[in-house]
Amino acid sequence: MSLVKRIRDISVATLNDKIENAEDPVRFIDKYLQTQKRKLTELEKLYQQTLTHAHSVKQQFMEAESNRIKRENQAEVAVKAGEEQLAKLILLEKMQSEEKSEQYRLLYEDGKQTILELEEQIQNLKDEVQELVDKRAFYEAKIESIRLQKQLNQVNRFIEKQNYYDQSRSIDQKFSELEMQTNALREVRSNDTKTGSSFGGKLQSEVDAQFQQLKKKLEKER
């Protein structure tokens, strides 16, 4: 595992903890995404600059290598022609081109390594950005689920409250009906009592009157 990968894994674990503990995970992710996208843009820009520089160094290396080969061939021709002094001068130039070629070769190798590291960092950052985008979608869906559940709970509480009020009204209505029936029965009984009393008084008077008439009749017969 590369050092970049290990560092990324540690960073991701730390980031996940921060997201879990954030008061507003979606807002936290949005803010972090902005930072990572800016970093990605800078890395991609640096990557392009590094590619351009590596291409330039490679051209210098190839040119120096071409000169080395050319001078080597010229030195062979000079030696075959018996031009020892000229051959030595050409070999000196060949050595200079060889040194220059080696310098640019090493520089180009370093540049290729830098390119590989940048490619790895860019890919890791792209993966992280995508993970954050996916995580943001998850937390957004989670928050929406919580909101809907709260709304459902409120509706249920409202329904329970309404049922309680309906039951209370039903009980109150039954009590009112019973009270009305009781009052009506009491009133009927009161009227019956009054009627009975009035009827009893008339009957007693008639009985007394007939009793007096009967007494008078008996006295006449004597």
Rank of each mutant, 00 (worst) to 15 (best):
Q85F: 04
Q96A: 14
Y104S: 12
L106A: 13
Q74C: 03
E93N: 03
A78T: 00
L89A: 10
A78E: 00
A87C: 00
L92E: 12
K100I: 09
L86Q: 06
L86M: 05
G82N: 07
L92M: 10
A75Y: 01
Y108K: 13
M95L: 14
L107A: 15
A81F: 01
R105Y: 14
E98R: 12
E109C: 10
G82E: 04
D110N: 13
V77S: 02
K94E: 13
K88V: 06
L89K: 09
L106R: 15
K80F: 11
Q85T: 06
S101D: 08
G111K: 13
E102R: 13
E109S: 12
V79S: 04
L107M: 14
V79G: 03
L89R: 12
L89G: 04
V79H: 03
L107Y: 10
K80H: 09
S97G: 11
S97R: 07
K112G: 07
K94A: 13
G82R: 07
Y104I: 08
E72K: 08
L91M: 04
Q74I: 10
K88H: 05
Y104P: 11
E72Y: 09
E93P: 00
L92W: 05
E99F: 07
R71Y: 11
Q85I: 03
E99C: 04
Q85A: 08
L91D: 05
S97A: 13
Q85K: 05
K112W: 09
E102N: 08
L91V: 02
R105T: 05
M95D: 15
E76Y: 02
K112P: 03
E109V: 14
A75W: 00
Q85P: 04
A78F: 00
L106N: 15
E83S: 02
K80V: 05
E72P: 04
K100C: 12
S97L: 11
K80P: 04
N73S: 10
E76A: 06
V79Q: 05
I90N: 02
K100M: 15
K80A: 15
L107S: 14
E76S: 01
E72G: 12
R105L: 10
S97E: 10
K112T: 13
E93C: 00
E98D: 08
A78N: 00
E109Y: 13
Q103A: 13
E93W: 00
E98K: 09
E72N: 10
E84R: 07
K112Q: 13
L107G: 14
E76C: 01
R71C: 06
L92A: 08
V77L: 03
V79W: 05
E76M: 06
D110T: 14
Y104C: 13
Q85D: 10
K88D: 03
S97W: 13
E76W: 00
A81I: 03
L92D: 07
R71M: 09
E93F: 01
Y108H: 15
K112M: 14
N73C: 06
N73M: 10
A81L: 04
A78K: 00
E83M: 05
Y108C: 11
S101G: 15
A87L: 00
